[in-house]
Design a protein around this nucleic acid. Structure first.
Length: 121
DNA sequence: AAGATGACTAACT
DNA sequence: AAGTTAGCCATCT
């Protein structure tokens, strides 16, 4: 193993990321930037992606609920992973519109609005 | 050690 | 609305 495995200066932060992701309610999504912010590291959107990539399988993290700020899935559209993520989300009731997800509805703000105002749109 | 890379973003065009 | 540009920051070459 390389010594990079031994380093991990932000191992704790990675755990915070995993926790945030694990708490995303089914049927909702967060953007990488939001996960970064909620885990206490505002400009670490790209690191969130890495933290997820390295996440232990046994955490059974709902990684599919993390998408990019444009409401799209951040994988090659033809990759198996893309299809898998999309299927998981659709199974939770998340609708795609031209391969895009309505963040107003399923995103962070959408969840808060739903909390305060209940179901509408 | 320097440059390329990425499951990213915000700001422009 | 879709494409480009410029920041971002730990890893990987």
């Amino acid at each position: 193993m390389s010594d990079t495995q031994h380093k991990k200066p932000d191992r704790e932060w990675a755990q915070a990321v995993w926790k945030v992701v694990s708490e995303i309610p089914a049927g909702h999504v967060l953007t990488y930037g939001e996960v970064a912010r909620l885990s206490g590291a505002p400009r670490y959107a790209r690191r969130v992606a890495q933290a997820l990539r390295w996440a232990p399988r046994d955490l059974e993290l709902p990684w599919h609920r993390v998408i990019n700020a444009q409401g799209k899935l951040s994988m090659p559209a033809e990759s198996p992973a893309y299809a898998r993520q999309k299927a998981l989300l659709e199974a939770e009731g998340v609708c795609f519109e031209k391969e895009k997800i309505d963040l107003q509805r399923y995103g962070y703000q959408g969840a808060l609005d739903k909390l305060f105002w209940g179901e509408f749109a």
